[in-house]
Each structure stands twice: as C-alpha cells, then as structure tokens.
Simulated assay, not measured.
Amino acid sequence: MARITVEDCQKQVDNRFLLVQMGIKRVQQYREGYEALVSSKNKEVVNALREIADGKVLVVEPEAPEEATA
C-alpha cells in the first residue's frame, strides 16, 4: 500500500486540528471494539488516517440549538 499523508486527508478535511481530533476519536473507537472500515496491517492511527482519506469517516456537524420562543 502507498503511504498515507496529511495532504491526502486534507482533501476530505481541510482543518488540521479537526483532522487530529477525528484520528484520535477513531483510534479510541478501535480500542472500544469498533471494526476497521479499511483493511490494512498498519497501526491504529495509520488505519484511521486511511479511513479519513478514503472518505469513510465523516465529520458530523452539531445541530444548532433551537431558538426559544417567548
């Protein structure tokens, strides 16, 4: 397999801070028992970056709170 780079991942997620947070969250999910979405024999963090670069892990935007009506 070819090397994975941050630039590959930034095609999907343009914010480096968010990219790091997504990678951390995905590694935590692996350790909780979640299955990998991309098969590889690499370490968890590399596998997480591969999933992000392939578009298999997406950002979920939080919903805006509804405005209270008086």
Rank of each mutant, 00 (worst) to 15 (best):
E61R: 11
V13Q: 00
E32Y: 12
V57M: 03
E32W: 12
A64I: 09
V20A: 07
L18D: 10
E32C: 04
A48E: 08
A2S: 15
E67Q: 11
V57Y: 00
S39Y: 13
R3T: 05
Q28D: 11
E7Q: 14
L37H: 02
I4G: 06
D54S: 14
Q12Y: 10
E44W: 08
E35K: 09
R50H: 12
R3M: 09
K25W: 02
L19W: 03
Y30P: 02
V45R: 07
R3W: 09
K43R: 12
L49A: 11
L18K: 07
N47E: 14
D8A: 08
V38M: 11
S39M: 08
I24Y: 03
N15Q: 05
Y30T: 00
I24Q: 07
Q10N: 11
Q29F: 00
E66K: 05
I4C: 01
L19V: 00
P62M: 00
E7H: 07
V20H: 08
G33F: 11
G23H: 01
R31A: 05
A36T: 01
L37M: 06
N15C: 10
L49H: 06
L19G: 02
Y30N: 01
K56E: 10
E66N: 03
K41A: 13
S39C: 05
F17N: 11
Q28V: 02
V6K: 07
D8Y: 10
R50P: 05
E7N: 08
N47G: 13
R16L: 10
E35F: 07
D54G: 05
D8Q: 09
C9N: 00
R50T: 04
A36P: 15
C9F: 03
E67V: 10
V20S: 11
E63P: 03
R31N: 15
A53P: 12
L19M: 02
A36G: 05
A53I: 07
V57R: 04
E44N: 14
V46E: 12
T5E: 07
K56N: 06
V46P: 12
E32L: 13
G23W: 01
V45D: 14
Y34R: 10
D14C: 05
A68K: 01
L37P: 07
D8V: 08
G23P: 02
V60Q: 05
R16Y: 12
V57W: 04
M1A: 15
R31T: 02
K56G: 03
N42E: 15
E7W: 06
M22E: 01
R26Q: 02
V20Y: 09
V46W: 08
Q10L: 13
R50E: 14
D14Q: 08
V59P: 03
V46R: 12
